[in-house]
Design a protein around this nucleic acid. Structure first.
Lengths: 350, 350
DNA sequence: CCAATGAATGATAGCGCTAACATATGGCGT
DNA sequence: ACGCCATATGTTAGCGCTATCATTCATTGG
């Protein structure tokens, strides 16, 4: 075939439904693709007249730039991956709020991936995220599969592990010490004079943070010569309802316990409602405490003792690290510890 | 410069931190890039031995494919955009669950964008989503800015508007009729003999679905010769607490109301707790109802009357439309109406 | 008047991958 | 031996943008 001979298999029919490209805008406005690109990105010098003409053309055509091509060409992707275990318990949505808040005026966009507390899901989600070459990655927790750790370490972008700092981060970390949080809560409970203390929480195969809190909690009990009077676990279902059921079970088994420590506020709230209904003397005869500091508690008949997990702040700080990194080059290794405050509420004697 | 002369400005230094490409794997395993590509995508015929060698090389290098380049070349993007107003009220996370469930075994990945009920945010998020050329887009609601509608109509991919069907969809829609839901609830309340009915809900500038429910509700009241005895609105803050406060306000203003209709379960739950604390006779002297059918209600002292919004099913159906579309070509225009069921619970007389 | 300047625009060459086609290789029947 | 086919692998040409450098053209000062 001689040069210039058209390939006939694919005639240049103008498909009206074909998605538009820069070239379409360029032709419609009579300038080069490059100029259109410049206008659409507000980059470089373009005369006011040309700019208007191009914008007008883009608008009438309904052109939406193809970021895939743009990202490939510029080697810049305005995405930040956020990998979290779940969206259904109020804690991560609040972290997301903190992240979005900071990213909003940086041109970066968070992209969420959910792992359901499954390590292999997490690995898959991280792989998927990294394959889009994001500007940075925010991942909940410090525990990951070997492969996941390797991928993140290799990725060449800032990685921020959030929520927890009891462990060794790959790059940066923002969080609280759950072990310490558990310890602190135990100390407060003991100081208030409670002695027969039960724990109620999730099955913690993969909820490392809940596990660490419990460890810290038991550690502090041990130091005071105490140990858990009872423990009860659940998984799935309505947390509020589970809290009730578990509380009933514990109180049935050990009528003499004088404190119930819940691994999260939701089941704690269920337990609180149960105790109040049964007419138990809270916090006189029996005390209760949860963890997280969720907003919901404000509407309860009595304020559950809890510990704020600094979720909003964690999100903010993590986002700041990612947004700030380009300026500072590859520094890495930042670890930010936040300190949750104990909110005694009305369910611990004072 | 004669052909073949090397450009000296960018010498081929091997940067160890440079992110890997197919070529690296190809060189490490001694086959062409194409073969590596085939192995990594499980596409085409590759001998077992080669496959192993390639996988081995990829694994040791820690290679993560670049989907940006892949997507540009193949014109296929395994992403489904999901645009929702908020993550913080339990309803959208459940929709997400339904979506993920279906997409899980299709190789498609949901990507979430949050609009905070702001139309201009929504427009921006939709633009951003479409610029990644996703396989499809799921958007909450039928009300969008003119520009947003135009973009979606132009996009050339399946668009599914969810939650609501009272209006004209751009392409497909999956949801319930909120107007009808409001009407039905009003009818049930009237049938139970309540007459002095108050409404408590969000400020609904941009919550079109809540507004439609209220419209349907008032419509049915009017048909029975009734009208709202009182109304109270809120925005922001802890919904449970707001529910309490609003209930107190309404009962203070109109002590003789005999029914409280809440625009969502969370404030309804707050109201219920308030009424129970005050020792009001529920549902004898005063009835209550919410909307959504959230799981939380199961743990309350009494079951709040509500209406399930079919959130899980909406997510599933929407995802199915997107996942199924490639097979059916461009058919479009599917509208799936789901029918919420009234759950009278313990807060409506029977 | 002309070189030097700067603003505005254009031409060219990829980014890292995959579709589509081209080519090698080996087994088989005849 | 030959051709034929299937299987396995390689080559080529983009995908739609942007970085980079080149070019054009009006201005300016000497």
């Amino acid at each position: 075939m001689h040069p210039g001979a058209a390939k006939l298999s694919n005639p240049p029919v103008i498909d009206p439904r074909r998605t538009l490209t820069l070239r379409d805008v360029s032709e419609a406005s009579g300038v080069s693709e490059m100029t259109v690109s410049r206008v659409l990105r507000n980059r470089g010098d373009v005369s006011g007249a040309t700019r208007e003409r191009v914008l007008q053309a883009a608008r009438t055509l309904g052109y939406v730039p193809n970021k895939i091509a743009g990202a490939l060409a510029s080697q810049r992707v305005n995405l930040v991956g956020v990998v979290i275990p779940s969206l259904s318990n109020m804690v991560f949505p609040e972290v997301m709020t903190g992240i979005s808040e900071i990213l909003e005026d940086t041109g970066l966009q968070p992209v969420v991936g959910v792992t359901n507390y499954a390590p292999d899901r997490e690995e898959a989600v991280i792989y998927e995220m990294l394959s889009w070459r994001p500007t940075g990655l925010i991942v909940a927790g410090l525990e990951h599969s070997e492969a996941a750790r390797a991928m993140m370490a290799q990725a060449g972008v800032p990685i921020v592990e959030i929520m927890d700092i009891d462990g060794t981060p790959i790059d940066s970390a923002v969080g609280i010490s759950h072990r310490r949080a558990g310890r602190q809560m135990a100390e407060a409970i003991i100081a208030a004079g409670y002695r027969r203390i039960a724990f109620l929480g999730t099955h913690m195969l993969n909820d490392h943070r809940a596990k660490k809190r419990l460890e810290g909690f038991e550690e502090a009990l041990a130091k005071a010569g105490l140990s858990l009077a009872d423990r009860e676990f659940y998984s799935g279902g309505s947390a509020l309802l589970k809290g009730r059921e578990m509380t009933e079970a514990v109180l049935g088994r050990c009528p003499d316990v004088d404190f119930l420590y819940y691994s999260n506020d939701m089941i704690g709230a269920g337990g609180l409602l149960y105790c109040l209904e049964k007419g138990l003397d809270v916090p006189g005869k029996i005390g209760l405490a949860g963890f997280n500091g969720v907003e919901l508690l404000d509407g309860l008949p009595r304020k559950l003792a809890t510990m704020d997990a600094c979720r909003l702040e964690i999100g903010r700080r993590a986002a700041e690290i990612i947004a700030g990194r380009p300026h500072q080059g590859i520094v890495g290794g930042e670890v930010i510890e936040l300190f949750p405050t104990l909110q005694p509420g009305d369910t611990i004697r004072r």
